[in-house]
Amino acid sequence: MTVADSPARPDSAAPSAPTGAKPVLDGTRGLPQQIGVYVFVVVPLLALVAAVPFAWGWGLGWSDIVIATVFYVVSGLGITVGYHRYFTHGSFKANRPLRIALAISGSLAMQGPVIDWVADHRRHHAFSDKEGDPHSPWLYGTGPAALVKGFWHSHMGWLFDRDQTNEERFTPDLLADADIRRVDRLFGLWSVLTLLVPALFGGLLTWSWWGALTAFFWGGLVRVALLHHVTWSINSICHMWGDRPFAARDHSANVWPLAIASFGESWHNLHHADPTCARHGVKRGQIDISARVIWAFEKLGWATSVRWPTQRRLDRLAKAK
């Protein structure tokens, strides 16, 4: 992969980084939003729990596997390349069609509207593993009981908190983008489509209602739940255990078993050492699928000003450890 030098930005950096003039929180979520969180988290989780007996009793067809894999890749890359590396950190510039496509594909992961997700993640970087971080596992202490509580909180417990991140402080650039505001407002539609379109494909491929039902289960609910927990593992596992070859101001670490499922997000230590870098897996053998996708977008001319790492920059980060 061709690399070009790019200056570092602070951990909280993103397009139009927050000035700190506005409060971190903007009240609490309303009851409808809170109910939505429970539905989006709990229903796919119940499907994931039921997946083993379901597969044992009724099987898992080839069409279910193909549909689930395709939607996992599309929605997963929407989170990693879109929500995270592009919208949160500005690791590259995207043309308008790509920008809209990334916002929609990330919405298909059912992890929240794009502006809400980005605001929470920029707040995470601004206060990483300190008071104010929405999902640090280190907020309750270092004893065994405290770490168990911290793991639960960082993995998914924080989602049930009603605190609302101040979007005017953390995402003024996205609020000023009419296309992204429109995609954000239609999150309910994307959530319905991400479950029903797999069912439609399953029905058409098998020409049966049963095929539609199993595709809804595997390609919709189970796929969403699996991607949920892979993403949340970056917040929990990758801030508790793993290798830390680069200097970061928190507990971020690399966890190699999650690399492929997370499309390279689990090379988390370098990401926190240099948040706007487009590539997270920078050492030999560190597979980073998201970086390869960004590289392909660059070659196609859809992405520009990509912030690739340089050896000089990496050596400086390693020495500062």
Results as ranks from 00 to 15, higher is better:
278 A>V: 09
199 A>V: 01
226 L>K: 12
48 L>F: 06
164 Q>I: 07
31 L>E: 00
208 S>H: 15
251 H>I: 07
299 K>H: 14
315 D>F: 15
9 R>F: 00
232 W>G: 00
71 F>Q: 00
28 T>S: 10
117 W>Y: 08
266 S>P: 05
219 G>S: 03
100 I>P: 05
285 G>F: 02
64 D>H: 06
205 L>E: 07
147 L>T: 06
92 F>I: 03
185 R>W: 02
209 W>H: 01
213 L>V: 12
61 G>E: 15
318 A>F: 14
153 H>C: 05
85 R>A: 03
223 R>S: 06
216 F>T: 01
44 P>R: 07
99 R>Y: 02
234 I>M: 00
25 L>R: 09
195 L>P: 07
71 F>R: 02
117 W>R: 04
69 T>Y: 02
320 A>C: 11
286 Q>F: 03
220 G>A: 15
29 R>V: 04
141 G>F: 09
93 K>D: 14
288 D>S: 06
75 S>K: 10
123 R>F: 01
171 T>G: 01
293 V>W: 10
303 A>F: 03
268 H>C: 04
88 T>G: 00
96 R>Y: 05
118 V>M: 14
185 R>Q: 12
293 V>M: 08
200 L>H: 01
221 L>D: 05
2 T>I: 05
127 F>A: 09
71 F>I: 05
168 E>Q: 11
252 S>C: 02
43 V>R: 04
142 T>Q: 11
132 G>T: 13
82 G>E: 06
120 D>M: 12
277 C>A: 13
51 A>Q: 12
264 G>N: 08
45 L>Y: 10
318 A>P: 09
147 L>G: 08
91 S>Q: 04
85 R>D: 02
106 G>A: 06
235 N>K: 12
68 A>Q: 10
128 S>Q: 10
63 S>M: 02
2 T>K: 11
55 A>G: 14
213 L>T: 05
129 D>Q: 05
266 S>V: 06
285 G>A: 07
64 D>W: 08
244 R>A: 00
240 M>G: 04
135 H>E: 09
193 L>E: 05
12 S>R: 08
104 I>L: 12
183 V>Y: 03
290 S>D: 01
39 V>D: 04
103 A>L: 03
124 H>D: 03
211 G>R: 10
97 P>G: 03
218 W>C: 14
243 D>W: 11
83 Y>T: 10
114 V>D: 10
213 L>R: 13
17 A>I: 13
